[in-house]
Simulated assay, not measured.
Amino acid sequence: MSIRVAAVQAEPVWLDAKATVEKTIALIAEAAAGGADLLAFPETWIPGYPVFLWSYPVYLQQEFVARYHANSLTVSGEQMARIREAAAEHSITVVLGYSEKSGGSLYMAQSIIGPDGRILLHRRKLKPTHVERALFGESDGSGIKVVDTALGRLGALNCAEHLQPLTKYAMYSQNEQIHVAAWPCLGILGREPALSPESIMAASQTYALEGGVFVITSSQIMSDDGARAFPDASGGPTPVYTGGGGFARVYGPNSGLVTEPLPPTQEGIVYADIDLSSIDLAKNTLDPAGHYARPDVLRLLFNATPATPVTSDDAPDKGREQDFPPPKHDSPAATDLPAPSQGATGR
């Protein structure tokens, strides 16, 4: 069975949830018109990656922190409902990255939304990276999870979670077939080797090779105008700006690139037609969590239990394993119609 997957390469409307949700809905419609069964968005796509964390000392960040809280989504809120309705209207699976507001805390969240608008998985980044910990809270092992979908076994991680060997191994062990690697704005800090697009793409490609899985990478870009949303003292672009940052692409389970990349500064959607049967051949060579494992020598202790600060006797701790009702508009499930040939489109 051929599945058409798609990855977003675009710039959010910085610090503006309403406008970025509108753009999200338009991208969902565009991907569906392009025949996509699945669309992947970057990390913290809504309301954009918090570039201010890397741009200013803490005492100058407060204005941005307040705006970021005000423009973060709640998983059961109106803006999320609109995105779920768009997924259902177009019968497409959407993997959305966003800043989630829960009470007074923020989390780097991802939601897998099925083609009927149901949330199949809601997860949070296990541990924010470096300065991100000044803004976002941590999660627990319940979000390191692969879910069954009509397209196959689907999972997602955020950013530097792809540099955590044990987290990756926990995902590999769940027989993941399609993986969304959501990356933030790669138009910043590009000259720092550990954070460069080259290193990030190497991590994505390694995930495909190790896991024997199709990896869909999605990233934000930053324009010259966007860089001025976080101005320096003279009103110029943020000092961490290095330009572009678009690296949407798809890697096959043998680590080969199966898409034609867009230019790093160009907005668009990259498409690939994939066949899950090719995973068997890849894993016949390497299957680190299967026949290539040595559990008598090395094993992973994995705690997938949800954890919350307070658990009462009459309300057992269920973490985020909630039953999110379907959106208002019913829609048929995604079909298995043949998709057009793979390629990339830009605007």
Rank of each mutant, 00 (worst) to 15 (best):
R84Q: 08
S72V: 07
S204H: 11
A160H: 12
L163F: 05
P263C: 02
S255Q: 11
P263Y: 01
L60K: 13
A289S: 15
T129D: 13
D336N: 10
T149A: 04
V95D: 08
V75I: 12
R67W: 03
V310G: 02
G187I: 01
V297E: 12
I178A: 02
Y68L: 06
D140V: 03
P239W: 04
E85L: 01
E132D: 14
R133I: 09
L154E: 06
A31Q: 07
Q322E: 09
L39R: 00
T129P: 00
A33N: 12
P306Q: 09
S277V: 04
D287N: 15
I92R: 06
A88G: 11
R124D: 13
V51R: 10
L189Q: 13
G252P: 10
D16N: 15
V94K: 01
L151E: 10
S99M: 01
H69D: 07
R294F: 11
V13D: 09
L73I: 04
G48A: 12
Y68R: 04
A36W: 08
F214I: 03
R347M: 10
Q110C: 02
G77H: 07
Q79L: 15
K318N: 11
Y271T: 04
A156C: 10
A81H: 12
F302M: 03
G104M: 04
G245L: 10
D37S: 15
P12M: 07
K283G: 01
R153H: 12
P325T: 09
A229N: 14
R124I: 02
A86S: 14
P237M: 11
P288R: 13
Q220R: 05
P309F: 03
V95H: 06
G152I: 07
P306Y: 08
A248T: 04
D116W: 01
R228K: 15
Y68D: 07
V270P: 00
L60N: 12
F52Y: 14
H130M: 07
A33Q: 15
E43R: 08
A70H: 04
R133S: 13
G34V: 04
P340D: 07
R124W: 05
F136A: 11
E267Y: 03
L135M: 13
D273N: 15
G211L: 04
R153P: 02
L186I: 03
P47F: 03
G256E: 14
L96Y: 02
P325N: 08
Y271L: 06
G343R: 06
L157P: 00
A134D: 13
P309C: 08
T20D: 03
Q322P: 00
E192Q: 10
A17I: 04
T206F: 14
G117F: 10
Q9E: 10
P325C: 02
G268W: 07
G211W: 06
I269C: 04
K125S: 05
Y59P: 00
E138S: 12
A194N: 11
